[in-house]
């Protein structure tokens, strides 16, 4: 009886520990060489180090692959390190932005902020005085107003594109795309020229809402369209086969099935407009006092609070106030985004 050895399936293409250590040590070598270059040549500073490190590491890995395998693999490795460079360059700003806002912003946060407005304070006052109640209220009112108008329009557009698929579907898809490219300042100018100057002759919160609506509709329409497209056609066919009219199918089957998707569309729409500054500067004015009436009077907003503290202040307090406002705005965006991810990650239907 000879014991037959069954060959185990191997993975010859996998990177072995030996190769990994070899590559790792090459990168470490590049690191040391880059430090030496910075020390002994004209290149200097962080930039010089980063540049020489990148090119040295790429070159060393290129040579290693050339020796181990062939020129194809070596060129491949160069592409790999350039792709890595791309993603690192993309990530540096986001890390820098978030850390700057957190480090500079926490000084501008104080519990009093939530209960007071800036009516009696200048931006240069200590953080304990004044607050952003008016800004939070203004932003929530304007965003809510924009949502009330743009959600129905956005969803109807999405329904037209996915359910009716009429002969205008293609042009409308294009127009929604084009609308998402409308500069925010143009949205502000439009409300200014069509409503503020000829009709109300006064800046107010509702004008801010309308300007934001223009920016919000495309986001909602496109997200809702994507979400409705995810609903399997079987559901629609089942509805129609049971004798339901299209209206009953859409209202009773498709929309309920896409409910979490539509909530995602709302959330992404809010995230899109919550930090918009330029149109609000034009049409809702900048209020420093709490204003609960969106139909008249200038209305404050979170972006305006930040804008004013940065531009009119100049003291430590004003900057801390501005970065604090930015931190709150960023926190809102993070929360909205997390919610959207959570809802979007769940299975539809």
């Amino acid at each position: 009886m000879t014991v037959q050895t069954i060959p185990q399936p191997g993975k010859p293409w996998e990177v072995t520990v030996k190769q990994r250590t070899a590559t790792g040590s090459l990168i470490a070598l590049a690191f040391i060489l880059a430090a030496a270059t910075v020390k002994f040549s004209g290149l200097s500073g962080k930039l010089g180090f980063a540049v020489s490190f990148f090119f040295l590491a790429t070159f060393l890995i290129f040579v290693q692959q050339l020796k181990l395998r062939d020129s194809q693999a070596a060129k491949d490795a160069v592409l790999g390190s350039f792709a890595m460079l791309g993603i690192v360059l993309t990530l540096i700003p986001i890390v820098s932005i978030v850390s700057t806002v957190v480090i500079k912003g926490y000084k501008g946060i104080h519990p009093n902020l939530l209960f007071k407005d800036m009516a009696l304070n200048s931006v240069n006052d200590p953080i304990e005085q004044g607050g952003l109640l008016h800004a939070l209220v203004g932003t929530s009112l304007m965003v809510a107003g924009a949502l009330v108008i743009s959600f129905p329009i956005g969803v109807l557009t999405a329904l037209y594109l996915t359910e009716i698929r009429g002969k205008f579907a293609r042009p409308i898809k294009f127009l929604v795309q084009a609308m998402s490219g409308v500069p925010s300042i143009v949205a502000g100018l439009f409300i200014l020229s069509s409503l503020v100057y000829p009709v109300t002759k006064e800046l107010s919160g509702i004008m801010g809402s309308l300007a934001l609506t223009i920016l919000m509709i495309p986001t909602i329409a496109r997200t809702a369209e994507e979400m409705l497209l995810l609903i399997p056609n079987d559901l629609r066919e089942a509805g129609v086969a049971l004798g339901a009219t299209q209206w009953r199918t859409v209202s009773g089957v498709v929309v309920p099935a896409a409910k979490s998707g539509l909530v995602t569309a709302i959330i992404l729409g809010i995230a899109r407009i919550i930090g918009e500054t330029a149109p609000l500067l034009l049409v809702s004015g900048g209020g420093d006092a709490l204003n609960l009436n969106p139909t008249s009077g200038a209305m404050g907003s979170l972006p305006y609070y930040i804008w004013k503290a940065f531009l009119t202040g100049g003291t430590e307090e004003a900057l801390a106030r501005a970065w604090g406002g930015m931190l709150i705005l960023l926190a809102f965006i993070f929360i909205l985004f997390g919610l959207a991810r959570y809802l979007g990650g769940r299975k539809v239907a």
Binding site: I97, V101, A271, I274, T277, P303, W307, A322
Partner: peptide
């Protein structure tokens, strides 16, 4: 989704 205000001041 970051607002342009944030990019500007950063």
């Amino acid at each position: 989704a970051f607002p342009s205000l944030l990019y500007g001041f950063w």
